[in-house]
Design a protein around this nucleic acid. Structure first.
Lengths: 176, 176
DNA sequence: TATAATTATTAGGAATGCCTAACTCCATAA
DNA sequence: TTATGGAGTTAGGCATTCCTAATAATTATA
């Protein structure tokens, strides 16, 4: 069990810096503090750690810049964040604000393997004619009825499956 | 954003104590240390915190016992663990050991709302004739082919959908 | 029962990561 | 050009959570 190269807190800093660089071209201590909801001295401290790990460049009173290694790491985290948010909102139907909060926490907890399976699974649902947005709508409807433990579905499955067959035929030769 | 009543570390201790109580009737410091892979003094310290929070009963050199409140909390965490493991292994096809590791981390990171949607989603997949184990098998097959970005499915969708229609008919009046 | 082995606790310390208060640096405005 | 206000840093502290070493209590064994 090898311990991770950076802590989840440092991952948050990297991710924040990455987002600020994208939004404002440069990342400043004050903005990082605002982004992560911490005070400036906490940022100063964290930046020292990240400089030591060669993940950012930062000279006194200057801007903060991700090194190539830092950027790769930040992108990886950011991608997790994005894909988890996508899964939570589109598939699980979680409200965006909550989905973002959950993604923010979960992105540090989930292994690359499981993250990749989630990505594949979302793509599979999108691509499979038995899945798709229309199928997810049934899920949402079932949620509304608060899926009982006995797993009795409220929806008319027969109708639903025939529909998905029809969709498949219509979709022939028309890539999404 | 209210801060949680107990930290993720304390949740781990509660969960460990809960599991040991179930396996061996009682939880001892040494076994808790073994379970959580920490040294005994760390356990002693943690127990003091949990006693202070009235989540366990523990007198010097005695056994550790969950209070009713502690037990409720431990059960909630344990349920998250179980349901996440179920999702990871059965739906995402993650090997059990890795699934357990991921569940262990994720259970502290995920909100009750999202956790519940995952539970409902798994039940929906199990119950929906367009989902089910057979559908998941297709997902596994697609994983084997390493689902491409263009979302082209390898499987014969037409055949697959017809099969799910047939399954639905067979399943009529025969609850699982 | 007395000694040995095991189990548990305390003491003390290190690493993280946050904070407030006080200081320094720097850009702008008078 | 100098005074001022905002941005950034440093110093010092607190909480969490882990550790090792030393001590104490309990249980098992001879």
């Amino acid at each position: 069990m090898k311990k991770p190269e950076v802590s989840s807190h440092m991952e948050d800093y990297l991710e924040g810096i990455y987002n600020l660089e994208r939004s404002y071209k440069v990342a400043r201590v004050k903005d990082i503090a605002g982004w992560l909801q911490v005070k400036m001295p906490s940022v100063s401290g964290a930046l020292q750690t990240l400089v030591r790990k060669k993940l950012i460049k930062h000279e006194r009173h200057g801007y903060v810049e991700l090194t190539p290694r830092g950027k790769i790491m930040a992108e990886r985290i950011q991608n997790k964040h994005k894909d988890l948010t996508d899964f939570f909102t589109r598939i699980l139907n979680i409200p965006p604000v909550q989905a973002a909060r959950d993604a923010c926490q979960t992105e540090h907890a989930i292994s690359p393997m499981t993250m990749n399976q989630i990505r594949k699974f979302v793509r599979f649902i999108d691509a499979c004619p038995r899945g798709g947005t229309e199928w997810i709508k049934y899920f949402m409807a079932e949620c509304y009825f608060s899926l009982s433990a006995e797993k009795k579905l409220q929806t008319d499955c027969h109708q639903c499956i025939k529909q998905s067959l029809k969709n498949k035929n219509n979709a022939k030769n028309s890539p999404r």
